[in-house]
Lab assay of single mutants.
Amino acid sequence: AVTGSQTALLLRAFEKDRFPGIAAREELARETGLPESRIQIWFQNRR
């Protein structure tokens, strides 16, 4: 499950760019500790 702090970080990124590229998703994966594929799905679901 995604924690509150991970969600906050993802929401901030989403406000800046609703369609992040692979580099941005990989950076978010490093920052959150989540797999990049999970980040991609999160953005798809959020849109």
Rank of each mutant, 00 (worst) to 15 (best):
E26D: 06
R47T: 06
A8P: 02
A23G: 08
A8W: 08
T3V: 06
G21P: 08
V2Y: 13
D17V: 04
P20T: 02
Q40T: 09
A24N: 04
R46Y: 11
F43R: 00
R30D: 04
F19W: 14
E36S: 07
F19V: 04
A23D: 10
A1G: 12
T32A: 04
F43K: 00
A13M: 07
A29W: 02
R25L: 15
T32V: 07
E27M: 12
L28V: 02
A24L: 10
L9A: 12
G33E: 02
L11T: 10
T32K: 00
G33I: 01
I22Y: 11
A23K: 13
K16Y: 08
R47W: 06
Q44G: 05
V2M: 15
I39Q: 00
Q6I: 14
D17S: 08
S37D: 11
E27N: 08
L34A: 01
R25Y: 12
E36L: 12
F19N: 10
L11H: 05
R46S: 07
I41E: 15
Q44E: 15
F14Q: 01
P20K: 00
T3W: 05
T32F: 02
V2T: 07
L28N: 00
P20Q: 01
A24E: 10
P20V: 03
K16F: 08
A13R: 02
F43L: 03
A1W: 13
G33M: 04
R12K: 13
L9V: 14
G21L: 05
E26I: 12
Q40E: 15
R38T: 15
R47S: 05
Q40N: 14
E15M: 11
A24T: 09
N45V: 09
P20C: 04
G4L: 14
R25G: 02
I22H: 11
L28C: 02
W42Y: 01
K16I: 11
T3I: 05
N45Q: 13
A1I: 13
Q44M: 08
W42E: 03
R18C: 09
R30G: 04
A29Y: 02
E26F: 07
I39T: 01
N45D: 13
R12L: 12
T7S: 11
Q44T: 07
N45S: 08
L9S: 06
D17P: 00
D17L: 04
Q44Y: 09
N45H: 11
T3Y: 05
G4E: 15
E27Q: 14
R38Y: 15
R25N: 02
G21V: 03
V2Q: 05
Q6D: 03
R38Q: 14
E27R: 13
I41D: 14
F14N: 00
R47D: 04
R25E: 02
P35C: 07
L34W: 09
T32R: 01
L10D: 02
V2D: 06
G21W: 02
F43C: 00
R12T: 08
R18T: 06
E27W: 10
L10Q: 01
R46A: 14
L9N: 04
A8C: 14
P20W: 03
R12E: 11
F19P: 01
R38W: 15
L9I: 15
R38G: 07
L9F: 07
L11S: 06
V2E: 08
T7R: 14
A29M: 07
A29R: 03
E26G: 06
E31G: 04
A13E: 04
F19A: 05
K16Q: 10
E15S: 09
R12W: 06
Q40R: 14
R46P: 02
R12F: 06
V2L: 15
Q6E: 04
R18I: 05
W42A: 00
I41V: 10
R47E: 05
